[in-house]
């Protein structure tokens, strides 16, 4: 159980400016600005949930993860994870969490992956039997057999990420924080990572918090989404909720014979050629079914395609609405 209540965190940064004059000026007199990285952030995540944590760059995602993993002490507010305050009981706390930073490695560059794993066993004092069991399981699920004897520097990005994830799970954490786990991966690796996370969550009940810019990760994994912008929690709901609220447009592409396009509320003509049209539909005025019905009454339709906006487009609409 993860509980954050009214977490605040602000940083002071030196203002930098371009140009010789400004640089000389700031050499003598420096100005600072305060950035509210986390501004009254509260949420609760239950055991066994997979939560997608989204927001534009600089929204406060990493700061949140740092607070939850005990690296960063907030200015005010409370955070309890499985009953512990992460930054006060850091050592006990980190035994129960696993963290994967997509852009940062915990594997040793020049030695075989298995050596890094065995080092982690010692660092976390994992008992031999548990270690062997976890290693075997992870090797199988993430297909690591051939990678374990290879030095990290010779692995591809996708192979390395699979090893990183395994490394974060060797000590059987109850909670897993994934910071952009699929960044830069090819399509096959992405799918492998996603299906592994899903299985992990289903079989072991591991709680997963996932930050990502890839909406396909969210679609494939997250039952719940937290949207953060400028340090504030803007939205907390399921992907379906979001769809209902933000994916209200449809694009209809028609091929038809004869007749004139009818005027319907909520329908806008995007392009029109003889026998061919693309229409934008607002489903809050007319449902897709009604629109097709009235169109087919007045036209003889030979083909029709309906496109819903992608998750990606939805997020763009979302960011736009919240002006973040």
């Amino acid at each position: 159980m993860i509980q954050l209540e009214h977490i605040h965190k602000s940083f002071r940064v030196a203002r930098r400016s371009a140009g010789m004059k400004a640089a000389l000026h700031s050499f003598l007199h420096r100005e600072y600005t305060t950035i509210h990285a986390l501004d009254d952030l509260s949420f609760t995540i239950g055991d066994g949930e997979i939560v997608g944590y989204i927001g534009p760059n600089g929204a406060g995602k990493s700061s949140t993860i740092k607070v939850m993993s005990g690296i960063l002490t907030p200015d005010s507010g409370t955070c309890r994870i499985n009953g512990r305050i992460p930054w006060r009981q850091r050592i006990e706390h980190v035994r129960e969490i696993g963290v994967v930073f997509g852009q940062r490695s915990q594997l040793w560059w020049d030695v075989p992956v298995i050596d890094s794993f065995s080092l982690l066993q010692s660092i976390y004092s994992i008992p031999d039997t548990l270690y062997r069991q976890n290693l075997e399981e992870l090797t199988q699920l993430l297909h690591l057999e051939e990678l374990l004897r290879t030095p990290t520097r010779q692995l591809s990005l996708g192979q390395r990420m699979r090893c990183e994830i395994a490394a974060a799970l060797l000590h059987s954490p109850k909670i897993l924080f994934l910071d952009e786990p699929t960044i830069g991966l090819d399509a096959v690796s992405k799918l492998a990572v996603r299906s592994f996370i899903r299985e992990l969550n289903q079989n072991k009940g591991t709680t997963v918090l996932l930050t990502t810019h890839d909406m396909q990760d969210i679609e494939a994994l997250a039952q719940r989404i937290l949207l953060i912008g400028r340090g504030r929690l803007l939205l907390d709901g399921s992907l379906q909720d979001l769809r209902r609220r933000f994916a209200t447009g449809r694009i209809l592409t028609l091929a038809y014979e004869g007749g004139a396009l009818p005027q319907l509320p909520g329908i806008r003509v995007l392009t029109q050629e003889p026998g061919h049209a693309r229409l934008a539909l607002d489903t809050t005025c007319t449902s897709t079914a009604d629109a097709i019905k009235s169109l087919s009454q007045q036209l003889s339709i030979t083909d029709i395609a309906v496109e819903a906006p992608t998750a990606e487009e939805m997020v763009v609409a979302l960011y736009k609405e919240y002006q973040i």
Binding site: S69, G70, I71, V94, R104, Q106, I123, Y124
Partner: peptide, 11 residues
């Protein structure tokens, strides 16, 4: 950012 990593380990 290596030090962040150290803080994530129980040592």
């Amino acid at each position: 950012g290596e030090f962040d990593r150290f803080l994530l380990e129980p040592r």
